[in-house]
């Protein structure tokens, strides 16, 4: 279709959907209302399983199957991106050039920030069942923290910290561990992903049964997954050269 024809079809469709959506909004409960049936059940269930962070309880205990699916999506995308961006034909890795050109002060700052970020990441993962945060958030912090090294212009040191094969292992191992926790629930508690570990006491670090375990598993999965994903894009942007070979310029 021509650009104009496409726009006409689009506007007709969008207008129709908008009209239908506005009709629908008439039946919506007002914003900020107090009726949330699932919330009431979920909060009670979280307290029964001594998990102060109800979101973590929903993600890792009550609706843990969703999270397993989501981790699997992450695994699939990591594998998929790695497969899509693999080197084919006469693509080559370019001989490495010097790193970025940030002023030394900023580079040093990034270097110093690295351990701090990693500690924050670990802390966010470990306390996921108690305070806001958890495996997702901590995992992303960990992965991003590692890439401060790239900002610091030390791509080579980043690479040393990043033997990609091991991260892929880590990704696979985390997914297997998640399934393993699920199967343990099946064996010990009679249903897949049942929370079979001792629940402990409220607001203690070691409490909430499998929730912190799954938090750590997901933290590993997200951190390794994000590192592998970013690595693929970094390789493409910085080091891979296609077609003509090593003589080509950047």
């Amino acid at each position: 279709m021509s650009g104009r024809a496409r726009l006409v079809v689009f506007v007709l469709g969008a207008a129709g959907l908008a009209v239908a959506f506005v009709f629908a909004l008439g039946g919506m409960p007002p914003f900020g209302g107090s009726e949330h049936p699932y919330r009431d059940l979920a909060v009670a269930a979280a307290l029964r399983h001594v998990t102060p962070n109800v979101v973590s309880s929903v993600n890792f205990d009550q609706r843990a199957l969703d999270t397993l699916g989501e981790e699997t999506i992450l695994l699939g995308s990591v594998i998929g991106a790695a497969a899509l961006l693999r080197l084919v034909g006469h693509e080559k890795e370019r001989p490495e050039r010097a790193g970025g050109r940030l002023p030394d002060a900023i580079g040093l700052g990034c270097y110093l920030l690295l351990p701090v970020t990693l500690l924050i990441g670990l802390d966010v993962v470990a306390h996921g069942h108690l305070t806001p945060g958890g495996g997702f958030q901590g995992g992303v912090v960990l992965a991003t923290g590692l890439h401060l090294l790239y900002l610091a212009g030390r791509y080579r040191s980043l690479e040393r910290l990043r033997p990609l094969a091991w991260y892929e292992f880590g990704e696979g191992a985390s997914a297997t561990a998640f399934v393993g926790v699920g199967l343990a629930g099946l064996a010990a508690g009679g249903s897949f992903l049942a929370n079979v570990l001792p629940l402990g006491s409220f607001r203690e670090l070691l409490s909430a049964g499998t929730v912190p375990v799954l938090n750590i598993v997901v933290g590993c999965a997200v951190a390794t997954g994000a590192v592998v994903l970013l690595a693929q894009f970094l390789e493409q942007a910085i080091r891979i050269t296609g077609g003509a070979g090593p003589g080509s310029s950047g």
Partner: peptide, 28 residues
């Protein structure tokens, strides 16, 4: 707050970084 934390990590850092790297690759 849980969602906000993830959104900072993913929406404000990770995804834009991937986009920038892609643009850089394509420009080159």
């Amino acid at each position: 707050p849980d969602v906000a934390l993830s959104q900072i990590g993913v929406g404000a850092a990770l995804v834009p970084l991937m986009v920038v790297l892609t643009v850089r690759r394509i420009r080159r």
